[in-house]
């Protein structure tokens, strides 16, 4: 009976992941087989042409995405970690209101933020720049980061902080030498998600970096779809490469991913 369930589970998972399989399959298909009907269901004569195209044309885009992702992680942690410590352990008056504002902030549609940022960035001269994109992308992660870090930091035993106080540590030292090291896992989780969202962002990139010299991989793929819709193996190969961070996240932080999916449902 249990094996029957495992069997059904395998079939359901295979169905669900079929598009992912198809992406990999198409990325390995030769140009000549691309328009075959019906298409090749297995990469019978696999080719790496698509991946060669990625190496030739998409590496700069991947580099920009890497920089934008890391920048977003840094900015997010600097803003969110102290705030979470305060909300979790220092009990500021009005902290509930702040959490409420953060929850609302998560619900604002991206297009609205993009238009506001566009007007501001144009006036400030940071349109089409990497720092501008980092700032915009960080808005995807900061509310989530504060809320989820607050939840994790609330679990730090007060006795631990109390002991530090007795030893004469101030709030800043307690934060740096106790709260941050103890929260290492949650900080890593938040960093992974912030990186993933910045890496995946399309709406800010396409509005705020449309004319930029340094564009992220999402715009690389988008331009690919627009320009040469014949070479789908190259497009899908780029898509496979662009999926690597998501795959790593699932392998490295599997048990935190579920918590990330429910991020919006975090209380307060």
């Amino acid at each position: 009976m249990r094996h029957v369930k495992t069997g059904i589970g395998l079939v359901l998972t295979a169905l669900m992941l079929f598009p992912v399989y198809w992406m990999v399959n198409v990325s390995l298909t030769r140009d000549t087989d691309m328009r075959k009907s019906p298409p090749n269901f297995f990469p019978a004569d696999p080719t790496l042409e698509g991946y060669r195209a990625v190496l030739d044309e998409q590496v700069p885009y991947l580099g920009v995405s890497l920089v934008v992702g890391l920048g977003t992680v840094a900015l997010t942690l600097v803003v969110a970690a102290p705030a979470a410590y305060s909300l979790a352990k220092l009990r500021p008056r009005g902290g509930g209101l702040l959490s409420f504002v953060l929850l609302i902030a998560q619900m604002i549609p991206g297009i609205i933020m993009a238009m506001g940022f566009y007007a501001i960035f144009l006036a400030a001269g940071v349109l089409n720049t990497v720092p501008g994109l980092i700032v915009a992308d960080s808005t995807l992660a900061v509310p989530f980061a504060v809320l989820i870090l607050t939840t994790f930091m609330s679990g730090i035993p007060d006795e631990l902080l109390h002991a530090a106080r007795v030893d004469g540590a101030g709030a800043v030292r307690a934060f740096v030498s106790i709260v941050l090291p103890v929260s290492r896992n949650s900080l890593i989780t938040v960093s992974l998600f912030a990186f993933l969202w910045a890496w995946s962002d399309f709406i800010f990139a396409s509005t705020l970096d449309q004319g930029g010299d340094h564009q992220p991989i999402t715009l690389g793929i988008y331009a690919y779809i627009g320009n040469n819709n014949q070479e789908w193996n190259a497009i899908m190969a780029t898509a496979v490469v662009a999926s690597i961070p998501a795959t790593l996240l699932l392998i490295v932080a599997q048990r935190y991913v579920a918590a990330g999916v429910t991020a919006g449902a975090v209380k307060d």
Binding site: T13, M16, L17, P19, V20, W22, M23, L196, W199, S200, F202, T218, I221, Y222, I225, I235, M236, A239, A242, S243, A246, T247, L249, L250, Q254, V257, A258, V261
Partner: peptide, 18 residues
């Protein structure tokens, strides 16, 4: 865990695959 994959993929990846 594998069922989470569609949620994790960049939307441009899912959209172009579909």
């Amino acid at each position: 865990a594998l069922f989470l994959v569609p949620w994790l993929l960049p939307l441009i990846v899912s959209a172009s695959t579909w």
